[in-house]
Design a protein around this nucleic acid. Structure first.
Length: 631
DNA sequence: ATTAGGG
DNA sequence: CCCTAAT
């Protein structure tokens, strides 16, 4: 299978891009055809650095992901002034770069992941290439290849790439930048002497960030900033260090809370890369070989080491002790429900707002019996329509605007078959139509091409569809086809809440299975904006999915974390017994999740360090086998 | 309003 | 998912 990248014919012949071998098997793009329409073929790089044709599975994975990623999200917002600029760059430059600059490993294009900095137009590319691959930072590459002397094209495009991570704003006008971008170095003029990231304020951190990366940031998250800066200064993924000594415009010392691993087995990674590629355009040019020995020392490109060092640093980033919470006084809720509504569910509202007789959503009523006795204060709530206030127990927060909690179900039941009406009401209620990319429709055909593990989803997916169909039928009777697929999407019901499943139990209230693409989006979101910045992710990456609140995202991430870390254990006895009608989450994704978790120090304390002990040879295999999460 | 956590 | 507490 080949992916044709529409490229300008201007590209002369180029050679296979070399991928830095990280010991595992990153998937990269290999250029196999010179003629105009440049054709790339997916390959993986084995331990020895040989290029092995990718299997169909791999190709498919990548392809799917490529398809899913819409550039729209990137650089959308986030206040970073450099982003809009970035979007102007042509993705092609990057491709060009990829193919012509052998020094760069396709792998290093890995979607800069680590976090915020929503940048680069190439993300669509990276998303796919990236999966299941080790960390290699673009910064690295740039730093070692960039040279003040070099002004040829290659470098130009190179800069474009590099910009994805650190060069940020220097890119803007492709013409005038060659010097700026090429020779960028941290401006430590403001960072003299010793700095301890831990002691800095957000503002100071932002300044430091600027000094370090040469661009502004709007991120206010201290943790994030510190990590980011640390990684930047240290030029590695290692953010365990929080104190640095800057001298002569360079980081000369890092306040390391030494932990073993001292003797680096890796080392001089970057140098090696450079040498390896001698003969290239940069030949003869004096590599600005990081005049700082420390840099080489700490280049944590070796994943194993990376995890390693990140992990045990007791003193470093005391991951903020879990937020403590007062024991929750949960009050009985289900009981009242039983009482207040008869069999038809919410059709018989308990409380009505004066004018419209619309039932309050259950959440609004929530009140349980004997509120008084429980001691909950009563407040008078004015409904939005100015009706007479109703006495309701005070609840700290009234859930609102949850699109799925509108009164649609009611409509559907009464005028079943009138999809249009429903739709209109929906609009009125502010629910945007189903996302352009409706998984329920897309996933199936997409996946159906693939053999291997991805096949399973196919089946599962169709089952999923059937499930919905069934449900729908139960509720609506025959008029199912009228509403096409999108009616699935808005099974916003509360109906379901009371619809007894054929099996017996009552179906859960609101439950919308997470689609694969949603998961991917979430993961990517976390990669870009960082875990925890859920509202951001929701706004930017989930704009089209009106359901899925930020909380949902958070929950899902939590689950993904669990899944990804839950040992790849269950592998054995559960081959067929998968009664779970759920789709297994593709291992590569879980892998990514784990990676991100690593980087963001979200590793569950329990599975501390043991995990990554001997994680080199089998990484390839684990990609195909580890599947412990479900959508 | 958002986020973290418990259920 | 839902819910509360914390920020």
């Amino acid at each position: 299978m080949e992916i044709v990248v529409s490229l300008e014919a201007s590209e002369a012949k180029v050679e296979d891009s070399v991928t830095q071998e990280t010991g595992s098997g990153p998937i990269s793009l290999k250029h196999i055809s010179d003629p105009d329409p440049v054709v790339y073929k997916l390959v993986r790089v084995d331990g020895e650095g040989r290029l092995v044709p990718a299997t169909d599975d791999e190709v498919l994975v990548v392809e799917d992901l490529l398809k899913d990623e819409k550039p729209q999200h990137f650089g959308a917002d986030s206040g970073d002034p450099t982003e809009c600029i970035k979007t102007e760059g042509h993705p092609m430059e990057k491709i060009h770069f990829l193919s012509s600059e052998e020094k760069i490993l396709a792998g290093s294009l890995r979607s800069e992941n680590l976090q915020a900095d929503a940048e680069d137009t190439s993300a669509q590319f990276d998303a796919g290439v990236d999966l299941g691959e080790k960390n290699v930072h673009p910064e690295e590459t740039v730093r070692h290849l960039a040279s003040p002397f070099d002004t040829n094209n290659i470098n130009q495009s190179l800069n474009v790439v590099g910009c994805s991570e650190s060069l940020g704003g220097s890119i803007e006008h492709g013409s005038s930048n060659s010097d700026v971008a090429t020779s960028w170095k941290p401006d430590f003029s403001k960072l003299k002497g010793e700095i301890c990231l831990d002691d800095l304020t957000v503002k100071e951190l932002q300044e430091t960030f600027r000094a370090t990366f040469g661009r502004e940031t709007s991120v206010k998250d201290k943790q994030w900033l510190k990590r980011r800066i640390s990684m930047g200064l240290t030029n590695s993924c290692d953010f365990s260090t929080m104190t640095f000594v800057i001298k002569d415009n360079e980081v000369v010392k890092k306040g390391k809370k030494e932990n073993r691993k001292s003797s680096a087995v890796h080392k001089d990674f970057a140098v090696g890369v450079v040498n390896e590629t001698s003969g290239g355009p940069l030949d003869g040019i004096h590599e600005p070989k990081e005049s700082n020995p420390d840099f080489d020392d700490k280049n944590a490109q070796n994943p194993v080491l990376e995890h390693d060092s990140v992990r045990e640093d007791p003193g470093s980033e005391q991951r903020a002790a879990k937020r403590v919470r007062k024991p929750t006084k949960r009050y009985i809720e289900e009981i009242s429900e039983v009482e207040s509504r008869n069999t038809s569910g919410r059709l018989v509202p308990m409380v009505k707002s004066s004018e419209h007789g619309q039932p309050y959503s259950k959440d609004f009523i929530r009140p349980l019996q004997n509120v008084q006795s429980i001691g909950r204060p009563m407040v008078t709530r004015q409904d939005s329509l100015g009706g007479s206030g109703v006495k309701v127990p005070y609840v700290s927060r009234v859930r609102r605007g949850r699109p799925r909690e509108n009164f649609m179900p009611l409509m559907k039941l009464q005028h079943n078959g009138i999809g249009l009406a429903t739709r209109m009401v929906k609009r009125a209620l502010g629910e945007p139509g189903p996302p352009p990319e409706d998984e329920t429709q897309n996933e199936v055909p997409k996946l159906s091409l693939s053999p291997g593990w991805i096949q399973q989803p196919v089946i599962a997916a169709s089952e999923k569809g059937n499930q919905y169909l069934e449900r729908k039928e139960v509720v609506l009777g025959k008029n199912v086809e009228l509403k096409r697929m999108d009616s699935f999407e808005d099974s916003s019901d509360d109906n379901m809440g009371n619809v007894p499943a054929p099996s017996g139990g009552m179906r859960r209230k609101h439950h919308r299975p997470w689609s694969l693409t949603e998961v991917v989006k979430l993961v990517e979101g976390v990669a870009r904006y960082g875990a925890g910045r859920w509202s951001e992710i929701k706004r930017l990456a989930f704009a089209s999915y009106s359901y899925r609140t930020s909380v949902d995202l958070k929950d899902k991430w939590r689950n993904l974390l669990r899944a990804s870390f839950s040992q790849l254990p269950a592998e054995k006895g559960m081959q067929n017994v998968r009664k779970h009608a759920s789709i297994p989450i593709p291992a590569p994704i879980l892998l990514r999740v784990r990676e991100l978790a690593q980087m963001q120090a979200q590793v569950p304390p329990t599975l501390g360090s043991s995990k990554f002990a001997g994680h080199s040879g089998d990484s390839d295999r684990s990609v195909h086998e580890a599947r412990s999460g479900y959508l």
